Amino acid sequence: MNVKSDYPVLEKKIDEDDNNVGWNDIGDYEIGQTVPYRYRTAVPNMNGYHSYYMAFQDKMDEALTFDPSSVQITISDGTKTYTLANSEFTVAENVKGLTFEAAIANLKAIVDREFPGGMNTNGENTYGQSIEVTYNATLNDKAADQTGRPGFENTVRLEFSNNPDSDGTGDTGFTPWDTVVAFTYKIDGLKINNHDKVLEGAKFRLYSDADCQNEVFLKKGANGYIVINRDSVGGDDHTGGSRPADAVEMVSDAAGKFVIFGLDQGTYWLKETQAPDGYRPILDPIQITITPTFTSDRDSYVDGQGATDAILKDLQAIATTKQFLGGADNTKTEDLVTDVATGTANLTVVNHVGSKLPVTGSNATIIMLAAGAVIGGAGLYM
């Protein structure tokens, strides 16, 4: 019998879709967004075994919802890629203290059948083919309770055959756990007038584009409004899909507050759809850009680091508003006060009182007003 002399090594990654980062150990997402994960290992030397057991054992934060139908396992030698049939592996949820386990009962039988090129007359094979496992989870509503640090971890280890005994199956061993992390953010909104009086009843919608065509759906939560990413309603991140039945407009409460939970990094546009009683609505959307700063070493995450400043180092947010006040067109860009620990950006939205016109942000308004004055003046002398 040829005794096994090498052991598999497992690598886990998360797919960050922002800034062309791709597969690494760190990501951030909206609530409701699909979060892609990947494991990679190699087929070990299985000579000396009659059968070989391999199982991927995964634990994920409760803010992540696993999609068992998304699991796919492929084996490749660089020339040929074989995707395992559903009958060739099992996915078991909530077993052994795990979120799930994806197990291959006899890896040796599959590899020897699909990659027989290295087989010799003694029934030995040249192994080392790559194994890749991919699957998805969804960032769920529980993420609203934990924006910012410490993030939402997902960790995996590999159980594998070793030390073959007389029946050629052997015992099993384990690789170390390998962990990745995801984050999400929030906006604490406050609606006031230009005399610092809080305003109740202002209504808002959030968009992912400057033209305000692609709404970021929100539903009412216990402490504010929770993002419903379009991945969850048949779309693709910020486009497509069906409007969910529980999607609502945001409304500032009696304290003037509205809170948005579960935002990704990037740019959003906040549009006031209805002003409080006695005020005219802000016509131009407020542009808000959220920018986290992560460690430059995105491939060496260690369990628990998300709670420290080693990974999510800083959080910045910028808001740009357009105003037409006192006959002048004014654009204001300001750095928002943020709290990286809670993943919070604080935004104050102001309605002006008195004779000042509300925000319009368009030079066309000046032209229209001037034209109106000319027309009105002409009428007086006719």
Rank of each mutant, 00 (worst) to 15 (best):
V216N: 07
M60H: 07
G78I: 13
T289S: 09
A105T: 02
T83F: 00
T90M: 07
A307F: 00
G376A: 09
S300D: 15
Y39L: 10
W177R: 08
T239F: 01
G372D: 15
V350R: 10
N136I: 02
Q129S: 06
V43M: 07
Y135L: 09
E215T: 09
D284V: 00
N346D: 06
G361F: 01
R38S: 14
F261P: 14
P292H: 08
T273G: 14
T99N: 15
L315T: 14
L336V: 02
L206N: 14
D145L: 00
A109L: 02
I260S: 10
R40Q: 15
H352A: 08
V3L: 11
N163L: 11
G123E: 08
N125K: 01
D58F: 02
Q72H: 02
V259I: 12
S166Q: 13
S300T: 08
N154I: 02
E30W: 04
G262P: 14
T342D: 13
I366M: 03
L325N: 14
R298D: 13
D18T: 09
L369K: 09
E93M: 11
D18Y: 01
D284N: 08
G262N: 10
G97L: 10
A245C: 04
L84I: 04
V71C: 07
M382P: 12
T74H: 03
F66S: 10
